[in-house]
Write a protein that binds this DNA or RNA. Structure first.
Length: 112
DNA sequence: CACCTGACAAATT
DNA sequence: TAATTTGCCAGGT
C-alpha cells in the first residue's frame, strides 16, 4: 500500500481511520481524534466527518464530546439510537445521561 | 464571491 | 464559576 494516500481531504479520511479503530465497548472524544489527526481545534470538523460516515460502517456512535454527552445522537435517526448502541456494547451512563468516560474512555493509538 | 452554519474544545474575561 | 471569544475544516446559501 502506498503511504501517499493523502489524495483526498486527508482530514476526513484520517478521522475515519481512527474511528474504525475504536474498540468495542469503548468511546473517544472529538478533541482526542482531532488532536491525533493533527489539529486539536478541529474537533468540530471531526463531527462533520462522522456525519458523512454514518452508514459507512464506522462506529460513529462511539464518539462523544468532552463531557461524555452524545452530541450527535440526533444524527443517527433518533435520539435514543446512539445511546442504545452504546448500552448494547456494555457502555455505562451516568445519572446525567452521559457516558462514563472514566470507565470507557479510549484514545487513538492505544491499540497499536 | 462572501457570509453563515455545524455531532467541539480550550483559553480568556 | 459562568459567559464569551477564537480556532479549525468543509459545505451550503
Amino acid at each position: 500500500m502506498s503511504e501517499s494516500a493523502e489524495n483526498q481531504s486527508d482530514f476526513f479520511e484520517r478521522v475515519w481511520e481512527v474511528v474504525e479503530e475504536i474498540p468495542h465497548g469503548r468511546v473517544t472524544t472529538y478533541g482526542d481524534i482531532a488532536e491525533y489527526v493533527g489539529t486539536r481545534a478541529a474537533a468540530r470538523t471531526v463531527g462533520w466527518a462522522l456525519n458523512a460516515a454514518i452508514g459507512s460502517g464506522l462506529p460513529c456512535h462511539r464518539v462523544v464530546n468532552r463531557k461524555g454527552e452524545l452530541s450527535g445522537k440526533l444524527h443517527f435517526g433518533g435520539p435514543y439510537v446512539m445511546e442504545d448502541l452504546l448500552r448494547s456494547e456494555g457502555v455505562t451512563f451516568t445519572d446525567d445521561g452521559r457516558v462514563k468516560l472514566e470507565k470507557h474512555r479510549w484514545r487513538p493509538g492505544d491499540t497499536g
